[in-house]
Design a protein around this nucleic acid. Structure first.
Length: 420
RNA sequence: CGGAGCGUAGCGCAGUUUGGUAGCGCACAGCGUUCGGGACGCUGGGGUCGUGGGUUCGAAUCCCACCGCUCCGACCA
């Protein structure tokens, strides 16, 4: 892709009012733009990154045998009345009436719809287990949206649901998800911890959250360095009778750190299947409720967490797995014939090798190009300028750590591909 | 929902105290000079000063109401 043909609006100055690093950098790097409170526009560069994250999620979900489907965002009130969540969700749900006066909502999550499918279609133990997932937009009218992508009112979620015959089978589905989640976050270069948490409005017994430590995180995590106990502080408080200083397992003093929740896995048990009548026939021909689990990942939050934890003073540093491009070619002066010709040659050769490459073919000064390059954080910068050309070299610079190689301009592409 | 701050060109801001021609920097367009860490000169375009009402000869500025955004808290996957 050529910079002059794409839309990457970068900004020198911090956007007004923004204080969270990922919020500031995602706007400055031209990834996204706020539309109104809690609702974001994803621009081409940002969407490219989100699609990379989505494809990692999809691969890992398919690896555990999950099947992708797509559920509607519009939902009738009747399903939510059955489980009591029409009232429980209250104002957090976007509710409205259709032209006939029927109550509806924009779904904040999809347990009710999944259970609706299950009660209509799952008849026998032979139909189970099932794992269904989707990557789709969720709507929650949050009382206070925060930090751009950290807490939005409209956001993309990977949500999945497991349907099993019994606890033993369920535990397998649950642990498959646990593994898949660990793989997904590792592949996105996130350092995370798994903590026990409260399941809130989802219901069911204790759940587990996947957390990334960050000063801007809204959740507080307690950690026991002695026995390894980790939990959301809400849970720790209830386990130790209002005091969260001491580990409920070994009594040692607990550390408290802020974190961002990127994933949450829930043991729903029979809550939804009983409320909505999702039963199957067991081997004896008896009716039993389906045992359910639900599992969520905030897609934009992964992007935000990577920015929070991987950026430096100059901008974002994308891990190659989710970088929008692998290479950024920087011809320092496009009016210099040799610079331009060599840049174009290298660009075309890398493209021919099927790598994703962006060339900064703008007629801008070197300073501007270096600043923008660091800001948008492409893993490898290929710098082509007159100084290097006089020595017969181009430079390969790794965005992470700024490691630099001088490479013979005649053999540039093959050497670059070898090093990177 | 409680507390605080903010709203003036695409972005960042000054001007508001003390009412009197709408300003600056960046960005944008044209021309020229530049080209290894956000270059320079000249020229140019771009504004319902958040919205509505009020006071006044005259309101970005004073008064009232409303709306929006950000942050802290409450709440919450």
């Amino acid at each position: 892709m050529r910079w002059t043909k794409t839309y990457i609006p970068t900004f020198k100055e911090n956007p007004k009012g923004c204080e969270v690093k990922s919020h500031i950098l995602s706007i400055r790097a031209g990834l996204m733009s706020p539309l109104f409170s809690g609702v974001n526009i994803y621009l081409p560069l940002g969407w490219k990154i989100l699609l990379k994250i989505v494809s990692i999620i999809r691969e890992e979900m398919e690896r555990i045998g999950a099947q992708e489907l797509l559920l509607p965002s519009l939902s009738p009130s009747s399903l939510w009345e059955e489980t009591g969540r029409w009232k429980e969700y209250g104002k957090d749900m976007f509710k409205f009436k259709d032209r006939k006066g029927g109550d509806m909502c924009l779904a904040p999550t999809h347990e009710e719809i999944i259970t609706e499918i299950a009660r209509n279609g799952i008849k026998s133990y032979r139909d189970l287990p099932q794992i269904w997932f989707q990557i789709q937009t969720k709507f929650r009218d949050e009382p206070r949206p925060r930090g751009g992508m950290l807490r939005a009112r409209e956001f993309i979620m990977k949500d999945s649901y497991s349907l099993d015959t019994d606890e033993k089978s369920f535990e397998k589905s649950y642990s498959l998800h646990r593994t898949a989640y660990q793989n997904i976050f590792k592949r996105c270069s996130l350092d995370f911890v798994i903590v026990t948490a409260s399941s809130g409005l989802m219901g069911g017994s204790l759940s587990e959250e996947f957390m990334v430590f960050s000063k801007t995180g809204e959740d507080a995590i307690v950690i026991c360095e002695n026995c390894g106990y980790k939990a959301n502080r809400d849970i720790a408080v209830s386990n130790t009778n209002d005091s969260a200083d001491r580990c409920p397992k070994c009594g040692e003093k607990l550390k408290i750190k802020n974190a961002i929740e990127i994933g949450h896995i829930f043991r729903l048990g029979e809550k939804y299947s009983r409320a909505m009548g999702a039963f199957f026939l067991n081997t004896n021909g008896d009716r039993e409720p389906i045992i359910m689990g639900s599992y969520g990942i905030g897609v934009e939050r992964i992007m935000a967490c990577v920015i929070e934890t991987k950026s430096d003073n100059n901008g974002i540093i994308w891990p190659p797995s989710i970088a929008p491009y692998k290479f950024l070619i920087i011809p320092l002066n496009v009016r210099n014939t040799e610079t331009r010709k060599l840049s174009e040659k290298i660009y075309k050769e890398i493209l021919a090798q099927k790598y994703e490459v962006l060339i900064d073919d703008r007629d801008e000064t070197p300073g501007t190009k270096f600043k923008d390059a660091d800001l948008i954080g492409i893993p490898f910068q290929i710098v082509i300028g007159e100084k290097g050309l006089d020595k017969g070299v181009v430079e390969l610079v790794k965005r992470d750590g700024k490691k630099k190689w001088e490479i013979d301009k005649e053999r540039a592409v093959s050497e670059i591909l070898q090093i990177s």
